[in-house]
Design a protein around this nucleic acid. Sequence first.
DNA 1: TTGTGTTTTATTGCCTCC
DNA 2: GGAGGCAATAAAACACAA
Length: 523
Amino acid sequence: MEESSGVHSEEYKVSSEKDKKRRLKTPAQVMALEKFYNEHKYPTEEMKSQLSEQIGLTEKQISGWFCHRRLKDKKSLRDEACPSGRQDHSSGVVQDRGSGLGQDSCGSTKHGDYRNVDPREVESRRLYRNDYRAAGFTYDNRSHYTGTESCTDNTSSESSSSSQDRLFSLAEDPDDRENSRCLTHNGIITPINTNSAKIKGYKPSGYLKVKGEIENASITAVKMQLGGRYREDGPPLGVEFHPVPPGAFESPIRNPICEPSYVGNSALSHLSHSPDISGLERQPSLSNRYEVYNSKLSSQDLCVEGAYCSSVHGSDYQDKISQHQLKQNLTVLNHTKPFSKRNSFLDFYEDSPREKIAYNSKRKQRMSGNCGAEGSGIDSVTNGHGHYDGKIGSKLHDYDDVSPNVIKRSENFELKPSILIHNLCKSADKEERRPSTRMKKKKKDNEKWKGIEEYGNQVKLIKHPSNEMTVEKRVRPDLPKPDYVKRASLTGMPTWKYQGKGSVMGIPTSFSADETEETSSYL
DNA sequence: TTGTGTTTTATTGCCTCC
DNA sequence: GGAGGCAATAAAACACAA
């Protein structure tokens, strides 16, 4: 991988240097960057170097990109902080981001609000910490980052402006402890809890926490609002949804992701013999309410693009979320499959093909103000799937969290960072950077998932050339498997130099040999 | 096809910290 | 003084509408 990626990188660098013109980064690169950014807003030089090698950009470009990305985040926060009472498109919940103005680590270290707390460290570590802790993993790779890790860490970790951060914070909520399980060790949100996703809205930044929620009335209000109702099986934002009659949402478009598998009765979904029903959907553990909620969302918004409702998020945060969702979606599809998804490296990233999608669909996201509902729908859906004994959580990780096992099994995008980047770069770069004609673009929109799938196929080809089934079908059967998660969480950790530091790619050493063995055997 | 608006990328200057 | 980061700016690339 290093080889090809390296070559590619070199090529890209050379070409970039050749024409000093502004050169757009390939979707793969953007995905990788986004993903990495989601985990490390302030990458160390080492990380930058590594990343630059991985995606074929110069360190300077990497630094610049991160810098601008942070600005973007900051700007987003600022915009949302507008007194106009802007709401999060995806959730419709008043975002607390506003309060985070200038408080987020990505933003104003300059202002010295929390200089004492190295934003870089915070950003870099925050995710892990939450993850593992939440997940109940004994493994703590965060220590590698710095000894500064402390309780404050938690708060600071939430300082991130990203929606993910907000989501993470949810895990801290006593009522939402379960959610924490869903968090991936890499810090990417595993939308296990729909509520979390939906409420992504609520998440006071760590800084805010430190400062006191009092400072932000909106945050406090939301917090209070969520406080009582926000629970694992409860509807988001305290909105009670009435159960939908079975079959009410039987849309011709049965998107595994958006399709919430109606669940007034989880048993029904269980009994369903439809091959289209993903394992996730069958999960009996999903709360009815939750499912109902999802059903509604999906049916209402029913993005035709189904899998891609998430791409409709508004802000750049939503972008991240999109990535995340995408990741999740991809995961579901390939094993499901984003990138951010994304999700959020981060799949997209989040991100993965998903990221690409998000990337391409950004404009649309912006344009559609009511997309929020769609986005939230997706969130809820994906998250809803996450409700599996907490184990399922790992399944829904961002792709980088997804271990090789998952990848192998599901053949989806969720690759570890190195793999992801490599593959993405390979596929994306080999192909033309972007379609030049509008027709292509339009097609792209219609087939935004296509690209992702293609990418996934590439990976798939390498791993399972013979498998012609769709990703979704291939994956679904595995989802319900309990050990699936186990495996997923175990292997496939990126081989980053700094993994020891507890980077996203770090490999939890706590995993049992059995698991590893199992994984390897599978592979 | 063209014009307009938005987003992304690159550059530069300034500031802060070590 | 150097390194890293933020902010402002310009320009290219892109998306969309007419």
